[in-house]
Design a protein around this nucleic acid. Structure first.
Length: 406
DNA sequence: CCAGGACCTGCGTCTTTTGA
DNA sequence: TCAAAAGACGCAGGTCCTGG
């Protein structure tokens, strides 16, 4: 399982149920020419503005002249704009899902889908274990997800299934090509979400997570406030305030929820603020890799001069066994390649990347074979390690990986 | 297959809000 | 201020989900 998964917002919102349509009046202050002052009072064009019909050519001509008048005085005016919100138009429609279907859909995203959204040979027993439900429930919900067009799936053996996340390719499209963005979910957050038993609690939590994520694009946000009315818009009709109250009274580690009067405030626990968490994590990985490479190159110097080999759990120096007097090379990594390394570590864990790097070292760098795309090469190696299960074990139980899932 | 529970719908009744 | 409209609540009964 991956440590982070990208989940399309359109799909997620459809699964939670579309918000009822509503209109919002937005106000905006704009600068306009103030004709009600002493300089204007003796002007012909001001007189026209005040007396002629706004549609007339004379009025429009006067407007143009006023616009470039050196004596003009500006004032601010508030204008109101009606904004229509229609999620069905924005995100498309699929039927609203129940608790286990939502959780299963999220969970599937963590089994490294390829770029088309295809996930091969997922063990359904493991899915059941992750969700804490019966395997029958897994198959029942796969059937529901498939019937509602969220996924396509088939059994590849008694317990293994192969899945395609139907809308996966649209997750990464820009807005003008129909992309609606994706939510970056950490494995930790998923585990918390799975703990939520009440369906409405689940829906409200996911909605607020998306909301905070959307706000985070512009500036860092840690809390949102909602009225009961606003929450009701995203829930089925029968959800009266008392039912919502009941749903938000269920404790979770994700949000600190406080209610006063008619406003409910959702304060997110920093550990689950994924976008911030991800940036932090990304930077930590970059410095970790830089540190590793610097240390490694130091080691190379002493290995080449003294022929004393360090304990090397990642097999960087295994070539010593095959050939005496080997001259070990430095690893040179460009700045943008560190970004790729960090990206891979986020997805597959630090240890996988270092193990893959040792393979590259032995097969490319020592043989002075040219590497055109280090990131791509490492990814290919990691994927084949995962498929053959020869990787460094479970990606979230390794010691050097302690901040990736914290 | 089916019992039991979660989730949802419709309806009567009561309360609050709206707007003339 | 008051009546109509909208909202809230609880209940009965239906549908869907879960797991033996």
């Amino acid at each position: 399982m991956d440590l982070f998964a990208n989940i399309g917002k359109a799909v997620l919102i459809q699964s939670l149920g579309l918000q009822k349509n509503y209109t919002e009046t937005a106000s905006e202050s704009i600068n306009v020419i103030d004709h009600d002052n002493n300089t204007c009072h003796n002007c012909k064009y001001c007189d026209i503005i005040n007396s002629f019909d706004t549609d007339s050519d004379t009025y429009k001509a006067a407007q143009v002249i006023c616009e470039s008048c050196p004596h003009k005085v500006l004032t601010t005016k508030t204008v109101y704009k009606k904004i229509y919100h229609n999620e069905k138009n924005r995100y498309g429609y699929k039927p609203r899902l129940k608790s286990n279907s939502i959780k299963l859909l999220l969970l599937l995203h963590f089994y490294h889908p390829d770029k088309f959204g295809v996930i091969c040979n997922v063990n359904s027993l493991q899915l059941a274990k992750e969700l804490g439900c019966d395997i029958k429930t897994i198959f029942n919900n796969l059937e529901i997800l498939s019937r509602y067009n969220y996924i396509s799936y088939c059994k590849s053996s008694t317990y293994n299934i192969t899945v395609c996340l139907n809308d996966y390719e649209s997750y990464y499209l820009p807005a003008n090509k129909g992309g609606r963005g994706f939510f970056v979910m950490s494995l930790d957050l998923l585990k918390q979400i799975i703990q939520l038993e009440n369906l409405l609690t689940l829906r409200i939590h996911l909605r607020e997570l998306i909301e905070i994520d959307n706000l985070n694009i512009k500036a860092p946000f840690t809390a949102v406030s909602k009225t009961f009315k606003e929450i009701k818009l995203v829930l089925p009709d029968y959800c009266r305030p008392c039912i919502i109250k009941d749903a938000i009274s269920k404790k979770s580690d994700i949000f600190d929820i406080s209610v006063n009067d008619k406003v409910i405030r959702f304060e997110i626990n920093d550990n689950f603020n994924c976008r911030r968490r991800k940036d932090e994590c990304f930077n930590q990985y970059i410095s970790l890799f830089k540190e590793f490479i610097a240390d490694f190159n130091q080691t190379v110097i002493s290995v080449n001069s003294s022929n004393v080999f360090p304990d090397d759990s990642f097999d960087f120096f295994s070539a010593q066994n095959e050939k005496q007097d080997i001259h070990f090379q430095f690893i040179k990594i460009k700045d943008y390649e560190y970004d790729d390394l960090a990206q891979l570590a986020m997805q597959y864990s630090y240890n996988y990347v270092i193990t893959a790097l040792s393979t590259v070292y032995n097969n490319y760098i020592l043989h002075e074979r040219e590497i055109t795309n280090l990131g791509g090469l490492l990814r290919t190696i990691i994927i084949s390690m995962i498929n053959n299960s020869t990787g460094p074990g479970s990606s979230f139980s390794t010691g050097s990986d302690n901040f990736s899932a914290a």
